[in-house]
Computed example of a mutant assay.
Amino acid sequence: MARPRTPIGSTGTITVVGHIIDSEGRKVRPPHGTRPTIWRARSRFRDNDGVNRQVERWGPTKSSAENNLRTALTRRQHVARPTGQMNPDMTVSKAGQFWIEQNQYSAISDRTRKQYSDEFNRYIANGAISGLTLREANNIATLEQFLQGISDNNGNVAAKATRRVLSNLLNLAVRHGALPYSACRDLRQPKARADSLSSVRASRTKHDTDRAFSRDERALVVKVADRFSDDDALDVADLIAFLAGTGVRLSEALACTWWDDIDLKAKDADGKSAPTVHVRGTKTDKADRVIPLPEWLAKRLAKRAKKRWKSGLVFASPRLNDKTKPRDRRNMIRHIRTRLDEAGMDWATSHTFRRTVATWMDEAGAPLAEIANQLGHANVNVTATYLGRRQGSNRAAQIL
Protein backbone atom coordinates (compact mmCIF):
# COMPACT_ATOMS: atom_id res chain seq x y z
CA MET A 1 0.00 0.00 0.00
CA ALA A 2 1.37 3.40 -0.96
CA ARG A 3 2.49 5.66 1.86
CA PRO A 4 0.06 8.60 2.33
CA ARG A 5 1.38 12.02 1.35
CA THR A 6 2.16 14.46 4.11
CA PRO A 7 -0.35 17.30 4.50
CA ILE A 8 0.25 20.75 3.05
CA GLY A 9 2.22 22.86 5.53
CA SER A 10 3.75 19.90 7.38
CA THR A 11 7.42 19.79 8.37
CA GLY A 12 9.96 17.02 8.74
CA THR A 13 12.54 16.35 11.44
CA ILE A 14 14.88 19.24 12.20
CA THR A 15 18.60 18.44 12.00
CA VAL A 16 21.26 20.84 13.26
CA VAL A 17 24.88 20.53 12.07
CA GLY A 18 27.93 22.60 13.03
CA HIS A 19 30.12 24.33 10.42
CA ILE A 20 33.13 26.60 10.17
CA ILE A 21 33.99 29.27 7.62
CA ASP A 22 37.11 28.41 5.59
CA SER A 23 39.70 30.78 4.11
CA GLU A 24 37.53 31.31 1.01
CA GLY A 25 34.48 32.28 3.06
CA ARG A 26 32.63 29.03 2.49
CA LYS A 27 30.67 27.23 5.18
CA VAL A 28 32.12 23.74 5.52
CA ARG A 29 32.01 20.87 8.00
CA PRO A 30 34.82 21.26 10.54
CA PRO A 31 37.62 18.67 10.84
CA HIS A 32 37.39 16.24 13.73
CA GLY A 33 38.15 18.00 17.00
CA THR A 34 37.51 21.49 15.65
CA ARG A 35 34.81 23.54 17.38
CA PRO A 36 32.04 24.80 15.02
CA THR A 37 31.68 28.55 14.67
CA ILE A 38 28.31 28.57 12.89
CA TRP A 39 25.40 26.15 12.83
CA ARG A 40 22.89 25.11 10.19
CA ALA A 41 19.38 23.90 11.00
CA ARG A 42 17.53 22.11 8.20
CA SER A 43 14.13 20.48 7.67
CA ARG A 44 11.85 19.48 4.83
CA PHE A 45 8.59 21.37 4.29
CA ARG A 46 5.63 20.62 2.02
CA ASP A 47 4.67 23.87 0.30
CA ASN A 48 1.27 25.01 -0.92
CA ASP A 49 2.03 23.65 -4.39
CA GLY A 50 2.51 20.17 -2.93
CA VAL A 51 6.30 20.07 -3.41
CA ASN A 52 8.56 19.03 -0.52
CA ARG A 53 11.46 21.46 -0.21
CA GLN A 54 14.46 21.79 2.08
CA VAL A 55 14.39 24.83 4.33
CA GLU A 56 17.47 25.88 6.27
CA ARG A 57 18.56 28.67 8.57
CA TRP A 58 21.90 29.53 10.18
CA GLY A 59 22.93 30.83 13.57
CA PRO A 60 26.06 31.38 15.69
CA THR A 61 24.88 28.68 18.13
CA LYS A 62 23.03 25.44 17.80
CA SER A 63 19.93 26.75 19.57
CA SER A 64 19.82 30.03 17.61
CA ALA A 65 20.00 28.17 14.31
CA GLU A 66 17.13 25.91 15.35
CA ASN A 67 15.05 28.87 16.58
CA ASN A 68 15.65 30.74 13.31
CA LEU A 69 14.44 27.71 11.36
CA ARG A 70 11.34 27.26 13.49
CA THR A 71 10.44 30.92 12.98
CA ALA A 72 10.88 30.56 9.22
CA LEU A 73 8.76 27.39 9.15
CA THR A 74 5.99 29.06 11.13
CA ARG A 75 5.87 31.95 8.68
CA ARG A 76 5.88 29.52 5.79
CA GLN A 77 2.98 27.60 7.33
CA HIS A 78 0.86 30.76 7.36
CA VAL A 79 1.37 30.96 3.61
CA ALA A 80 0.73 27.25 3.06
CA ARG A 81 -2.30 27.30 5.33
CA PRO A 82 -3.92 30.66 4.65
CA THR A 83 -6.55 32.03 6.99
CA GLY A 84 -8.92 31.90 4.04
CA GLN A 85 -9.41 28.17 4.52
CA MET A 86 -11.28 26.06 7.05
CA ASN A 87 -10.35 22.57 8.10
CA PRO A 88 -12.33 19.78 9.80
CA ASP A 89 -10.21 19.96 12.96
CA MET A 90 -11.09 23.62 13.58
CA THR A 91 -13.19 24.08 16.70
CA VAL A 92 -16.71 25.42 16.23
CA SER A 93 -15.70 28.51 18.19
CA LYS A 94 -12.76 29.32 15.90
CA ALA A 95 -14.71 28.40 12.78
CA GLY A 96 -17.45 30.76 13.87
CA GLN A 97 -15.03 33.65 14.29
CA PHE A 98 -13.67 32.92 10.83
CA TRP A 99 -17.23 32.87 9.43
CA ILE A 100 -17.94 36.23 11.07
CA GLU A 101 -14.79 37.67 9.45
CA GLN A 102 -15.86 36.31 6.06
CA ASN A 103 -19.24 37.99 6.44
CA GLN A 104 -17.46 41.32 6.10
CA TYR A 105 -17.09 40.52 2.39
CA SER A 106 -20.61 39.21 1.80
CA ALA A 107 -23.53 41.07 0.29
CA ILE A 108 -25.69 40.96 3.43
CA SER A 109 -26.66 44.19 5.15
CA ASP A 110 -24.75 45.60 8.11
CA ARG A 111 -27.74 44.95 10.34
CA THR A 112 -27.93 41.28 9.31
CA ARG A 113 -24.17 40.94 9.69
CA LYS A 114 -24.35 42.26 13.24
CA GLN A 115 -27.36 40.10 14.02
CA TYR A 116 -25.52 36.95 12.91
CA SER A 117 -22.47 37.92 14.96
CA ASP A 118 -24.54 38.60 18.07
CA GLU A 119 -26.46 35.35 17.73
CA PHE A 120 -23.27 33.34 17.33
CA ASN A 121 -21.65 34.99 20.35
CA ARG A 122 -24.77 34.62 22.47
CA TYR A 123 -25.69 31.00 21.77
CA ILE A 124 -22.74 29.18 20.16
CA ALA A 125 -19.37 30.76 21.00
CA ASN A 126 -19.46 29.53 24.60
CA GLY A 127 -22.12 26.87 24.18
CA ALA A 128 -22.05 23.10 24.52
CA ILE A 129 -20.53 22.53 21.05
CA SER A 130 -18.02 25.40 21.02
CA GLY A 131 -15.06 23.13 21.83
CA LEU A 132 -16.00 20.40 19.34
CA THR A 133 -14.24 20.26 16.01
CA LEU A 134 -16.28 20.83 12.86
CA ARG A 135 -15.95 17.12 12.13
CA GLU A 136 -17.37 16.22 15.56
CA ALA A 137 -20.11 18.84 15.57
CA ASN A 138 -21.38 18.02 12.07
CA ASN A 139 -23.62 15.29 13.41
CA ILE A 140 -27.42 15.30 13.38
CA ALA A 141 -27.83 13.88 16.90
CA THR A 142 -25.25 16.27 18.35
CA LEU A 143 -26.78 19.35 16.72
CA GLU A 144 -30.37 18.41 17.54
CA GLN A 145 -29.45 17.89 21.20
CA PHE A 146 -27.69 21.26 21.26
CA LEU A 147 -30.62 23.07 19.62
CA GLN A 148 -33.07 21.37 21.97
CA GLY A 149 -31.15 22.84 24.88
CA ILE A 150 -31.30 26.30 23.31
CA SER A 151 -35.04 25.90 22.75
CA ASP A 152 -35.68 24.75 26.33
CA ASN A 153 -33.62 27.52 27.92
CA ASN A 154 -34.00 30.42 25.52
CA GLY A 155 -37.11 29.67 23.51
CA ASN A 156 -38.04 28.41 20.04
CA VAL A 157 -37.18 31.70 18.34
CA ALA A 158 -33.63 31.57 19.75
CA ALA A 159 -33.27 27.94 18.60
CA LYS A 160 -34.40 28.88 15.10
CA ALA A 161 -31.90 31.75 14.97
CA THR A 162 -29.12 29.46 16.24
CA ARG A 163 -29.92 26.87 13.59
CA ARG A 164 -29.72 29.56 10.89
CA VAL A 165 -26.28 30.62 12.10
CA LEU A 166 -25.06 27.02 12.30
CA SER A 167 -26.37 26.33 8.82
CA ASN A 168 -24.47 29.30 7.37
CA LEU A 169 -21.32 28.33 9.25
CA LEU A 170 -21.38 24.68 8.13
CA ASN A 171 -22.25 25.65 4.56
CA LEU A 172 -19.10 27.78 4.49
CA ALA A 173 -17.12 24.78 5.78
CA VAL A 174 -18.55 22.68 2.94
CA ARG A 175 -17.53 25.31 0.36
CA HIS A 176 -14.00 25.32 1.80
CA GLY A 177 -13.77 21.54 1.54
CA ALA A 178 -13.56 21.11 5.32
CA LEU A 179 -16.78 19.05 5.44
CA PRO A 180 -18.42 16.79 2.83
CA TYR A 181 -21.92 18.07 3.65
CA SER A 182 -23.82 20.07 6.26
CA ALA A 183 -25.84 18.11 8.82
CA CYS A 184 -28.08 21.16 9.25
CA ARG A 185 -29.88 20.17 6.06
CA ASP A 186 -31.50 17.20 7.80
CA LEU A 187 -32.19 18.66 11.24
CA ARG A 188 -35.68 18.83 12.69
CA GLN A 189 -36.55 22.16 14.28
CA PRO A 190 -36.86 21.54 18.03
CA LYS A 191 -39.68 22.88 20.17
CA ALA A 192 -39.35 23.72 23.83
CA ARG A 193 -40.64 21.01 26.18
CA ALA A 194 -43.74 21.87 28.16
CA ASP A 195 -41.82 21.85 31.45
CA SER A 196 -38.80 23.75 30.12
CA LEU A 197 -37.68 27.11 31.47
CA SER A 198 -38.64 28.97 28.30
CA SER A 199 -42.11 27.39 28.20
CA VAL A 200 -42.74 28.27 31.85
CA ARG A 201 -41.66 31.86 31.19
CA ALA A 202 -43.86 32.06 28.09
CA SER A 203 -46.87 30.69 29.95
CA ARG A 204 -46.69 33.51 32.48
CA THR A 205 -47.36 36.15 29.84
CA LYS A 206 -49.31 35.31 26.71
CA HIS A 207 -48.72 37.79 23.89
CA ASP A 208 -51.76 38.21 21.69
CA THR A 209 -50.30 38.61 18.22
CA ASP A 210 -53.75 38.88 16.60
CA ARG A 211 -54.97 41.81 18.68
CA ALA A 212 -54.74 45.50 17.85
CA PHE A 213 -54.79 48.48 20.20
CA SER A 214 -58.00 50.41 20.70
CA ARG A 215 -57.63 54.17 20.29
CA ASP A 216 -57.64 54.63 24.05
CA GLU A 217 -55.02 51.92 24.50
CA ARG A 218 -52.72 53.44 21.90
CA ALA A 219 -53.08 56.88 23.47
CA LEU A 220 -52.26 55.41 26.89
CA VAL A 221 -49.10 53.69 25.64
CA VAL A 222 -47.81 56.92 24.05
CA LYS A 223 -48.68 58.87 27.21
CA VAL A 224 -46.91 56.37 29.48
CA ALA A 225 -43.82 56.40 27.24
CA ASP A 226 -43.69 60.20 27.48
CA ARG A 227 -43.76 60.01 31.28
CA PHE A 228 -40.64 57.85 31.64
CA SER A 229 -37.95 59.80 33.48
CA ASP A 230 -35.12 58.23 31.49
CA ASP A 231 -36.52 59.16 28.09
CA ASP A 232 -34.12 62.06 27.58
CA ALA A 233 -31.28 59.55 27.75
CA LEU A 234 -32.92 56.54 26.06
CA ASP A 235 -35.09 58.41 23.54
CA VAL A 236 -37.88 55.83 23.22
CA ALA A 237 -41.12 57.84 23.38
CA ASP A 238 -40.78 59.43 19.93
CA LEU A 239 -40.00 56.03 18.43
CA ILE A 240 -43.14 54.54 19.95
CA ALA A 241 -45.18 57.45 18.58
CA PHE A 242 -43.64 56.92 15.13
CA LEU A 243 -44.50 53.20 15.16
CA ALA A 244 -48.02 54.01 16.32
CA GLY A 245 -48.55 56.63 13.62
CA THR A 246 -47.03 54.82 10.63
CA GLY A 247 -47.07 51.04 11.19
CA VAL A 248 -43.54 50.66 9.82
CA ARG A 249 -41.38 47.77 10.92
CA LEU A 250 -39.19 48.52 13.95
CA SER A 251 -36.08 47.77 11.88
CA GLU A 252 -37.27 50.29 9.26
CA ALA A 253 -37.83 52.99 11.87
CA LEU A 254 -34.35 52.45 13.30
CA ALA A 255 -32.25 51.93 10.16
CA CYS A 256 -34.25 53.16 7.14
CA THR A 257 -35.82 56.44 8.24
CA TRP A 258 -33.71 59.55 7.56
CA TRP A 259 -34.40 63.21 8.26
CA ASP A 260 -33.73 64.02 4.60
CA ASP A 261 -36.66 61.74 3.68
CA ILE A 262 -39.21 63.45 5.94
CA ASP A 263 -41.19 66.24 4.28
CA LEU A 264 -43.20 68.08 6.92
CA LYS A 265 -44.19 70.84 4.47
CA ALA A 266 -45.62 68.63 1.72
CA LYS A 267 -49.08 69.49 0.39
CA ASP A 268 -51.71 67.52 -1.46
CA ALA A 269 -53.39 68.42 -4.77
CA ASP A 270 -55.79 70.77 -2.97
CA GLY A 271 -52.95 72.63 -1.29
CA LYS A 272 -53.65 71.15 2.13
CA SER A 273 -50.89 70.00 4.45
CA ALA A 274 -49.92 66.37 3.68
CA PRO A 275 -46.59 65.54 5.40
CA THR A 276 -44.87 62.36 4.24
CA VAL A 277 -41.95 60.10 5.03
CA HIS A 278 -39.95 58.09 2.52
CA VAL A 279 -39.14 54.79 4.24
CA ARG A 280 -36.21 53.17 2.48
CA GLY A 281 -37.01 49.63 3.56
CA THR A 282 -35.26 46.62 2.07
CA LYS A 283 -37.27 43.58 3.21
CA THR A 284 -39.41 43.41 0.04
CA ASP A 285 -39.46 45.22 -3.30
CA LYS A 286 -42.36 47.31 -1.94
CA ALA A 287 -40.62 48.19 1.33
CA ASP A 288 -39.07 51.30 -0.24
CA ARG A 289 -42.15 53.52 -0.13
CA VAL A 290 -43.55 56.97 0.65
CA ILE A 291 -46.30 57.01 3.27
CA PRO A 292 -48.35 59.83 4.83
CA LEU A 293 -47.78 61.17 8.33
CA PRO A 294 -50.76 62.03 10.56
CA GLU A 295 -50.75 65.67 11.65
CA TRP A 296 -50.16 64.84 15.33
CA LEU A 297 -47.05 62.83 14.42
CA ALA A 298 -45.78 65.50 12.00
CA LYS A 299 -45.97 68.10 14.80
CA ARG A 300 -44.15 65.75 17.14
CA LEU A 301 -41.36 65.18 14.60
CA ALA A 302 -41.03 68.95 14.09
CA LYS A 303 -40.47 69.38 17.83
CA ARG A 304 -38.02 66.49 17.78
CA ALA A 305 -35.97 68.12 15.03
CA LYS A 306 -35.62 71.25 17.17
CA LYS A 307 -34.83 69.35 20.37
CA ARG A 308 -32.60 66.53 19.08
CA TRP A 309 -30.90 66.72 15.68
CA LYS A 310 -31.91 67.43 12.08
CA SER A 311 -29.68 65.18 9.99
CA GLY A 312 -28.85 61.49 9.71
CA LEU A 313 -31.18 58.82 11.03
CA VAL A 314 -34.28 60.10 12.80
CA PHE A 315 -33.91 57.55 15.58
CA ALA A 316 -30.14 57.19 15.84
CA SER A 317 -28.61 56.64 19.26
CA PRO A 318 -28.65 59.83 21.36
CA ARG A 319 -25.37 58.71 22.92
CA LEU A 320 -23.38 58.59 19.70
CA ASN A 321 -22.13 61.54 17.70
CA ASP A 322 -22.43 59.51 14.50
CA LYS A 323 -26.11 59.83 13.62
CA THR A 324 -25.80 57.50 10.63
CA LYS A 325 -25.34 54.46 12.83
CA PRO A 326 -28.56 52.51 13.58
CA ARG A 327 -29.52 51.67 17.13
CA ASP A 328 -29.53 48.10 18.39
CA ARG A 329 -32.94 46.58 17.63
CA ARG A 330 -32.95 44.18 20.59
CA ASN A 331 -32.23 46.94 23.08
CA MET A 332 -35.13 48.96 21.70
CA ILE A 333 -37.46 45.96 21.92
CA ARG A 334 -36.53 45.67 25.58
CA HIS A 335 -37.20 49.37 26.24
CA ILE A 336 -40.55 49.21 24.39
CA ARG A 337 -41.46 46.10 26.41
CA THR A 338 -40.87 48.02 29.65
CA ARG A 339 -43.21 50.81 28.56
CA LEU A 340 -45.91 48.43 27.35
CA ASP A 341 -45.85 46.62 30.70
CA GLU A 342 -46.02 49.91 32.56
CA ALA A 343 -49.13 50.80 30.54
CA GLY A 344 -50.73 47.48 31.49
CA MET A 345 -50.39 46.10 27.94
CA ASP A 346 -48.47 42.93 28.79
CA TRP A 347 -50.31 41.16 25.95
CA ALA A 348 -48.87 43.56 23.34
CA THR A 349 -45.49 43.58 21.58
CA SER A 350 -43.60 46.10 19.48
CA HIS A 351 -45.34 44.53 16.46
CA THR A 352 -48.79 45.42 17.82
CA PHE A 353 -48.35 48.99 16.57
CA ARG A 354 -48.02 47.65 13.03
CA ARG A 355 -51.07 45.42 13.33
CA THR A 356 -53.03 48.32 14.81
CA VAL A 357 -52.35 50.57 11.81
CA ALA A 358 -53.43 47.81 9.43
CA THR A 359 -56.56 47.03 11.44
CA TRP A 360 -57.68 50.66 11.74
CA MET A 361 -57.17 51.26 8.02
CA ASP A 362 -59.14 48.12 7.23
CA GLU A 363 -61.99 49.13 9.54
CA ALA A 364 -62.06 52.56 7.84
CA GLY A 365 -62.60 50.88 4.46
CA ALA A 366 -59.12 51.40 2.99
CA PRO A 367 -58.47 49.04 0.05
CA LEU A 368 -55.98 46.22 0.56
CA ALA A 369 -53.54 47.80 -1.90
CA GLU A 370 -53.37 50.97 0.21
CA ILE A 371 -52.86 49.01 3.42
CA ALA A 372 -50.19 46.89 1.72
CA ASN A 373 -48.33 50.03 0.64
CA GLN A 374 -48.51 51.45 4.16
CA LEU A 375 -47.03 48.25 5.59
CA GLY A 376 -44.55 47.64 2.77
CA HIS A 377 -46.02 44.27 1.79
CA ALA A 378 -45.04 43.05 -1.66
CA ASN A 379 -48.28 41.11 -2.08
CA VAL A 380 -51.81 42.12 -1.04
CA ASN A 381 -52.51 38.47 -0.22
CA VAL A 382 -49.98 38.78 2.59
CA THR A 383 -51.90 41.80 3.84
CA ALA A 384 -55.20 39.92 3.65
CA THR A 385 -53.80 37.04 5.69
CA TYR A 386 -52.24 39.55 8.05
CA LEU A 387 -55.69 41.00 8.71
CA GLY A 388 -57.21 37.56 9.19
CA ARG A 389 -59.33 37.59 6.04
CA ARG A 390 -59.73 33.88 5.55
CA GLN A 391 -63.35 33.94 4.40
CA GLY A 392 -64.27 35.97 1.36
CA SER A 393 -67.44 37.95 0.85
CA ASN A 394 -70.64 36.34 -0.45
CA ARG A 395 -70.71 38.67 -3.49
CA ALA A 396 -69.68 35.87 -5.85
CA ALA A 397 -72.53 33.66 -4.65
CA GLN A 398 -75.04 36.48 -5.14
CA ILE A 399 -73.79 37.18 -8.67
CA LEU A 400 -73.82 33.53 -9.68
Rank of each mutant, 00 (worst) to 15 (best):
R76S: 12
R76T: 01
R76D: 03
Q77M: 12
H78L: 07
A80K: 11
A80S: 15
A80E: 10
R81H: 01
R81C: 00
P82C: 08
P82W: 05
G84K: 14
G84I: 09
G84P: 06
Q85L: 15
Q85T: 12
N87T: 11
M90G: 01
T91P: 00
V92N: 13
S93C: 14
S93F: 09
K94G: 00
G96H: 06
Q97S: 14
Q97C: 15
I100A: 09
I100D: 02
Q102S: 10
S106E: 13
S106G: 06
A107I: 03
S109T: 14
S109Y: 02
D110P: 05
D110Y: 10
D110S: 15
R111Y: 10
R113T: 04
K114N: 14
D118V: 10
E119Y: 05
E119P: 02
E119M: 07
F120V: 09
R122V: 03
Y123L: 13
Y123I: 08
Y123D: 10
Y123A: 09
I124V: 15
I124N: 02
G127Y: 01
G127T: 02
S130I: 06
S130E: 12
G131M: 06
T133R: 11
T133I: 13
E136R: 11
E136H: 04
E136A: 13
A137P: 15
A137W: 13
N138D: 15
N139P: 02
I140L: 12
I140N: 15
A141H: 09
T142Q: 04
T142M: 07
T142P: 01
